[in-house]
Amino acid sequence: MRITASPHAIAAGLAIGVFAAFTPFFGFHFIIAVILAYLLAGNIGAAALGTAVANPLTLPFIWGGTYELGRFVISGGNADGAGSLNLVRALETMRFTEIWTPLIKPMLLGSTILGALFAVLVYGVTRVCVTGFRKKQAENRMSRQLMRRESRIS
């Protein structure tokens, strides 16, 4: 609330950070958020703060949700339509081709959809809150100035 940027820049930055937090590129969320905030004129500090959505408590839900949504969309609603995933085998060989279709592709698609939805929600709520907070601050400042003027006159 105390960032000096415009309400749009703050809301856009926070939304960009939330979007980046949904990507499966753990360890690169901050870098993704900073680059996107710079390119889209969002506040970089707010973007960095938004990446905190991805934390040890939320990551299992984010990853599970993005994977399942991506798998559902790719398979067209058919549970057997997506490639099968043998995570242990895929991670043992670390071949990109073995983890792309069953894991990364669904997570990228799901993270794009869920990240965009949450980013839009965060943008709207943040913009309203920052605008309201600043309006209330301005009203309080005016009230204090009026009280000072009245006390000087008396």
Rank of each mutant, 00 (worst) to 15 (best):
M1G: 15
R2F: 12
I3Y: 05
A9N: 08
I10A: 12
A11K: 05
A11W: 03
G13C: 12
A15Q: 07
A15C: 11
G17A: 13
V18D: 03
A21D: 07
F22M: 12
P24D: 13
F26L: 15
G27V: 10
G27D: 12
F28R: 08
I35G: 05
L36A: 14
Y38L: 15
L39M: 12
A41D: 14
I44F: 10
I44Q: 08
G45P: 03
G45W: 06
A46L: 05
A47H: 01
T51M: 01
A54P: 00
A54K: 00
P56Y: 09
P56D: 06
P56I: 05
L57K: 09
L57I: 10
E68C: 12
L69F: 12
R71M: 11
V73T: 15
S75P: 03
S75Q: 12
G76Q: 13
G76F: 14
G77Q: 10
G77Y: 13
N78P: 02
G81V: 06
N86W: 04
L87R: 04
L87V: 12
L87Y: 11
V88P: 00
R89V: 00
A90Q: 03
A90Y: 00
E92N: 11
T93C: 04
R95S: 08
E98S: 06
I99D: 03
I99N: 03
P102I: 01
P102L: 01
I104R: 01
M107H: 03
L108I: 05
L109M: 06
L114C: 11
L114K: 07
F118T: 14
V120G: 10
V122A: 11
G124Y: 10
V125C: 12
V125Y: 09
R127H: 14
V128M: 15
K135H: 10
Q137F: 01
A138L: 09
R141P: 00
R141Y: 02
S143D: 10
Q145P: 00
L146N: 07
M147G: 06
R148T: 05
I153P: 04
S154Y: 13
